[in-house]
C-alpha cells in the first residue's frame, strides 16, 4: 500500500508577534514546525503501513528550509520525502498550491501507483482547508474530509470504509481506492520514532523537485501570477474604542462588588436584565 502525505511547514503561530508600530509580522526567531494538523494524517498513514505494509511518502511544497519538516517526518517512520521548491511558487494561493501538489503527485505516480493521499484538516497559517479538496478534484479522486476513523481497507477489492465527522453527526462512508482523506485532529497520537529512523532521517538524500521536474512549463500559472486571490492589505485588528469599566476589588468586598456590577450592567443594558429574568421562571 502506498500512501502520500502532504505536509506543510508553518511558523509556530503561538510565538508570532505583531510589531506594535509597523503592524508587520515579526518572524525573526519564530520556530518553524510541521503544521500540527498534518501529524494526524501522517500517523494514520503510518498505522496503515503497520497493518498492510507498503510505503509512506511525504511531500511538501515550500522553501528550501522546509527540508527540516520532511526529515522530521522521516524520523517518525516515513519512507520517502519530496520537497517541491521553486522561486516561482512564492505567493501561491490555495488553488495554485493544489495545482502544484497535484502535478507532484502525478509525477510520483509515474514510478509508483498511489492508493491513498492524506492531508491535514487545515493549516494554522493558511487555515483554509482548501488544499485537500483541491487536489482531490484535480485528480478526480473521491474526497473524504474530516475523517475521524479508518474503519477498514479492503486492498483486494480496492475499497475503504471510514467514519467522517459531518454536521450534527457521523457518516459511515464506503468508497473506492485511490481516494483523498483529510484527517480530523485528535483522532490519533503521533508515535515516537525509533533510533533507526532517526539516523536514516539524518542521512536520507532528499528529493528536491523544481517546477520543471513536475511538468509545469509556464511560470505564470503558479505563484502570485497564477493565483486568483490577491492580498490587498494586511492590518491589525482595530481596538475597541473604550476600555472596560473597571470595578476594583481593593476597596470593596466581593459581595458588594458583585452587586455593583449587576446594578451597573442592568442599568446600562435593560434588555440583558429581562433576558436573565426570563430564567427565573
Amino acid at each position: 500500500m502506498h500512501s502520500v502525505v502532504c505536509i506543510k511547514q508553518v511558523p509556530d503561530s503561538a510565538q508570532i508577534r505583531v510589531h506594535p508600530v509597523t503592524n508587520t509580522i515579526m518572524r525573526q526567531g519564530v520556530p518553524a514546525i510541521i503544521n500540527p494538523y498534518d501529524l494526524f494524517a501522517l500517523e494514520e498513514a503510518l498505522r496503515l503501513k503497520d497493518r498492510f505494509g507498503g510505503t509512506v511518502t511525504v511531500v511538501t511544497m515550500g522553501p528550501p528550509m522546509a527540508e527540516a519538516a520532511l526529515r522530521k517526518c522521516l524520523s517518525y517512520g516515513a519512507d520517502d520525502a519530496i520537497l517541491v521548491s521553486d522561486r516561482s511558487f512564492a505567493g501561491s494561493d490555495t488553488l495554485v498550491t493544489s495545482y502544484a501538489l497535484t502535478a507532484t503527485l502525478r509525477k510520483i505516480m509515474e514510478s509508483m501507483p498511489v492508493d491513498l493521499i492524506f492531508t491535514g484538516k487545515q493549516t494554522i497559517d493558511g487555515d483554509t482547508a482548501q488544499v485537500g479538496p483541491g487536489i482531490a478534484k484535480r485528480l478526480d479522486y473521491q474526497l473524504l474530509t474530516y475523517v475521524s476513523k479508518i474503519v477498514d481497507v479492503d486492498l483486494e477489492h480496492r475499497e475503504i470504509r471510514v467514519e467522517r465527522r459531518a454536521e450534527g453527526g457521523v457518516q459511515l462512508l464506503k468508497t473506492t481506492l485511490p481516494c483523498l482523506i483529510t484527517m480530523l485532529e485528535g483522532t490519533n497520537e503521533m508515535r515516537f520514532g525509533d533510533l533507526d529512523d532517526l539516523f536514516r532521517a539524518a542521512r536520507y538524500e532528499l528529493k528536491v523537485w523544481d517546477r520543471t521536474v513536475i511538468g509545469i512549463e509556464d511560470p505564470e500559472t503558479v505563484g502570485v501570477k497564477g493565483s486568483p486571490t490577491v492580498v490587498s492589505k494586511v492590518f491589525a485588528p482595530r481596538p475597541r474604542s473604550q476600555r472596560a469599566e473597571i470595578i476594583d476589588l481593593q476597596d470593596d468586598s466581593p459581595k458588594n462588588l458583585a452587586s455593583t456590577l449587576l446594578a451597573r450592567m442592568f442599568t446600562q443594558h435593560p434588555k440583558l436584565e429581562r433576558e436573565i429574568a426570563k430564567r427565573a421562571r
Partner: peptide, 16 residues
C-alpha cells in the same frame, strides 16, 4: 484573520 488571528488581511478575486 491571518497568522492565527494576530492580523487581518483583505483579499480580492479580481480576475475571476
Amino acid at each position: 484573520p491571518t497568522f492565527g488571528g494576530s492580523l487581518l488581511c483583505t483579499i480580492l478575486t479580481q480576475r475571476h
